[in-house]
Simulated assay, not measured.
Amino acid sequence: MSSVIAFDTISQRLIASWTATPLVFENDPYDLPNAPAAFVYVEIWAIPGGFDQASIGAGARDDNLWREYGTLDMHVMVPKGTGSRDAREKAGQLIDLFRGFEIGDLTFLEASIGEGQPGRSFANHWAMTASISWRRDQ
């Protein structure tokens, strides 16, 4: 999982900017409605070895540049059997909230829709994943 700084920065941006569907973050409670409806399940994680030293020779260890790398996965959940267009559209809108932006200490980089995680079925929902990589310098 990511640092709390990265989690807070990303989750605050999503909460402030996304109104199209409910947002559900990792391990948050969410009661699925009786009739399947769209929502976004959010995972914010750091890649293995997520903190790297990016400079040397600055004196004390903490005076050097440290870089955290991660990925934001936003799983757009739509009712099963309703096609993929709505999920793709929402995934693109979610990526547009981050791609190319610097927010606080985070820089958002490459983005994809469905790359490595094609649409998948979960009970009464179908998921299309929007992913965007990020880095944080400290």
Results as ranks from 00 to 15, higher is better:
N124D: 15
M128L: 10
M128H: 08
Y41K: 13
A111F: 02
E110I: 06
D73A: 09
V42N: 01
G83N: 03
E115C: 00
E26V: 05
A91C: 02
R13L: 01
L106N: 06
A16H: 05
A20R: 10
V78R: 02
D28I: 00
L109I: 07
G83D: 11
P33S: 12
N27M: 14
W66N: 02
L109W: 11
G81M: 11
F7I: 03
N34R: 13
Y41S: 03
W66T: 12
K80M: 14
T129E: 01
Q53A: 05
H125G: 03
E89R: 13
G92V: 09
A54H: 01
I113D: 09
S112Y: 10
Q93I: 03
V40I: 10
L106E: 08
A20E: 12
V76D: 04
A130P: 08
S55W: 05
L94I: 15
F98D: 02
A130V: 03
G116F: 00
I95V: 15
P36T: 11
R88C: 01
A35T: 15
G70F: 06
I44R: 04
A127V: 08
T107R: 11
W66Q: 11
E43M: 07
N64W: 11
L23F: 01
Q12W: 00
D105Q: 09
L23K: 03
G57R: 04
F98A: 06
Y41W: 13
P48Y: 06
I47C: 01
T129I: 02
L106F: 10
A58G: 04
A54D: 11
E115R: 14
M77Y: 04
I47H: 04
F98L: 06
S17H: 00
D96T: 07
Q117G: 05
G104T: 10
P22N: 15
S55L: 04
N124P: 02
T21I: 00
G119E: 09
T82K: 14
L14F: 02
R61S: 14
A58T: 00
T21V: 13
L94F: 09
A130R: 07
V76C: 09
F7P: 01
I113G: 06
A130M: 03
A87W: 08
W66R: 10
